[in-house]
Design a protein around this nucleic acid. Structure first.
Lengths: 395, 395
DNA sequence: AACGATTTGTCAGGAGTCGAAACTAACCCG
DNA sequence: CGGGTTAGTTTCGACTCCTGACAAATCGTT
């Protein structure tokens, strides 16, 4: 293929794209074309995780033959996703390999973070997770269809900016939103946005002409820590402390969704029957001890010793709630994401101690309880990671 | 194919068998032959769950064409797994359909339950989960390689009996054992058997000439409740109260294994820092409140009111430990498996109340907390279900 | 009784996908 | 300079699935 294309312009792809939603469902037929798409995704995943490799290396890594890998790579090159790099004469015998690499900086992704309506964040990221450009908008007070229209308009703007910046193409749009979101990107319920059963991904995909993928914000954080933060693929839980408290769980590289799509919703778990009243109308929810507003209020004007006691108590509450989950799922890691000045000190220490004390001791120092690697861009980068898995099929 | 074969004799299969371990790994290549095996498993799964169907019905259910389904069915008939049934003239227009059905009673599976060494149970089951024959053995006191040899000999006996009883063939052997077992059937650690890193499945597969699959006993129970007991496919946890306390978690139809293959090991979760001492050397493990020996001892000679109080307290402990797991995973169901006289009354009620009180209330009465459907054959039937998923690829 | 409509199951042909074997290209080493 | 080695491509064959067409069997209508 020698046709040239305007940068960022959408055009038909040569190779089949994976079905939206990612991997193969166990109880669904597999057609040859889907097998091809899967192998294509495997190749992309290896290139994503292990950097530039020659076709022969890819064949060894994937188990496919060099012939098949060459075909797949040709398709990826035609799609502007992959490019041949300069052959390095690597002191070995034989014909020097031609490394091919993901065009990680030429392909862009749009990510939107709806966590706080008063400061909705939109960003353009490249495939390495780097934020190329970022904007914010104030959607404070908008609800229902007005909020929907505003989100659409905001996405349209960021998407346009991404398209003009992309040297290759824009893969899609990822949105992290509070509320309950199902695997098709339908917002089942989002109180602050006034949405209920809004097929957000479908609506915006039609409106924007780009693949839109939606996920709960805490789940996005967990996905980001897994894809870009190096959290354990076999099992990790990311607890996000913000206005409220949420979490996301990744098992075997896949997000846990739950029967009602509400996995990770531990904010309103009751941890003290007669604890402080919560917005939800009940008492002693974990969120009443662990949210930025509650914590800052509890620390307001206290002595250092008192502050430490408050943080330690909150960490203990968290650890007590996490321990059964860690034990039941045999998690490798628990990550705390949020303001470091609140989380990184006594709170983390207390949570770690509570979890370790409650679980059977193991040889290694697992489970690891640590602060998250990603700063406040976790949701954005998680939404971007969702686009990668949705549009390219790897994670 | 018109060759006839002695019943139960192992012979090469016409169609590719799924790789041991079941479903497709996300980050592995897919060959055409594997796609075929997958579609074959899908057809088998539909026949298993939805009873006899015509080829045309199978095509509609799976999304494959009638042509492809016919080919797959022909292979399954050649493998004695499926048979054509009598055509029922079903009052509809068109050529009457020929229903084909799983030969569920002609194909057998061997299952072994190593939970209690003093009463090792072996059984022959058909594919519907019915126990055709059962034997026990006393392997009390055997450890290490002696235990291994004894288990092999016991399996050999049951397998021989199954082979002579099978009208079609014996699919394989499933073993449920205490201890930590990885997904390849290697027993990483089993204290009472003195095993550590014993590749039990591999060793017995070679020794017996039949596919052997091994799983932790509590996980087998969870698998049985899912496959034969009708527990929710989207997310359920089965807690098994026996000599100790264990659990298994099924999410999206798949067993959760965990980073160190120890998922479900909640027996030694500390629920009371200064609780009663446990065999593990620590104090206040959940198992010290919830195991058959501890419970019976605590109930010994008590008044009915006192008994109820003990059971309620144990249920509360359990509920408090389960609630975070239920919330974090958004589980649909929690099942309690074990002696009904201990579990079914105040203990279950208290556990249910604790879980419901601690979790955000939902419209439906989820999560369901109930006793398990299967009686003491849960481990055996779970081991059998493991053989189904391992040898036939569906679950 | 005959005919069309409908449904089932199969046959024939074609498009995809992957692997094995052979080949060319390019490099190192002796 | 030639042999050995590695990378990438070409060719061919096997396998899987689908589309379109067909025969078989039944119901309903004429």
């Amino acid at each position: 293929m020698t046709t040239s294309t305007a940068p960022g312009a959408p055009r038909p792809r040569t190779a089949p794209r994976p079905a939206p939603g990612g991997g193969l469902r166990p109880s669904a037929k597999v057609l040859p074309a889907q097998a091809r798409a899967h192998n294509r995704a495997v190749v992309l995943g290896v290139l994503f995780h292990s950097g530039p490799l020659s076709r022969a290396d890819l064949a060894r890594a994937t188990g496919l033959t060099r012939v098949t890998v060459s075909e797949i790579v040709a398709g990826l090159v035609a799609d502007d996703l992959v490019a041949e790099l300069q052959a390095r004469s690597g002191g070995r015998v034989g014909k020097p390999a031609t490394p091919v690499g993901l065009r990680g900086e030429d392909n862009l992704v749009v990510a939107v973070d709806l966590t706080r309506l008063s400061a909705v964040r939109g960003a353009v990221l490249d495939l390495t997770g780097r934020v190329v450009e970022e904007t914010t908008a104030d959607l404070h007070g908008l609800r229902g269809s007005a909020a929907l229209a505003a989100v659409e308009e905001f996405c349209r703007g960021v998407l346009g900016s991404a398209r003009s910046a992309a040297r290759a193409s824009v893969l899609g749009v990822g949105i992290g939103t509070p509320g309950v979101v199902d695997e098709h990107g339908t917002v089942v319920d989002a109180a602050n946005l006034g949405w209920s059963d809004v097929p957000l991904a479908q609506l915006l995909t039609d409106a924007l002409g780009a693949g839109v993928h939606v996920v709960n914000d805490a789940n996005a954080g967990a996905l980001a820590e897994f894809t870009y933060g190096g959290s354990s693929p076999s099992g990790s839980m990311t607890v996000m402390v913000g206005e409220g408290l949420g979490a996301g769980i990744v098992l075997d590289g896949h997000l846990v969704r739950g029967g009602r799509m509400a996995a990770g919703e531990i904010g309103h778990l009751t941890v003290a029957p007669n604890g402080p009243p919560c917005e939800c109308g009940r008492r002693g929810c974990l969120e009443t001890y662990l949210s930025v507003p509650r914590l800052t209020a509890a620390l307001e004007g206290r002595t250092p010793a008192r502050r430490r006691a408050v943080l330690t108590a909150a960490g203990r509450r968290l650890g007590a709630a996490l321990a059964p989950v860690v034990a039941a799922l045999d998690l490798d890691e628990v990550l705390l994401s949020g303001p470091r000045d609140l989380l990184a000190g006594p709170l983390l220490d207390a949570a770690r101690r509570s979890v370790r004390d409650a679980c059977l001791p193991t040889a290694d120092d697992v489970p690891t309880v640590r602060t998250a690697s990603l700063e406040d861009s976790a949701v954005l980068r998680g939404a971007a990671a969702l686009v990668l898995s949705g549009e390219l099929g790897f994670s």
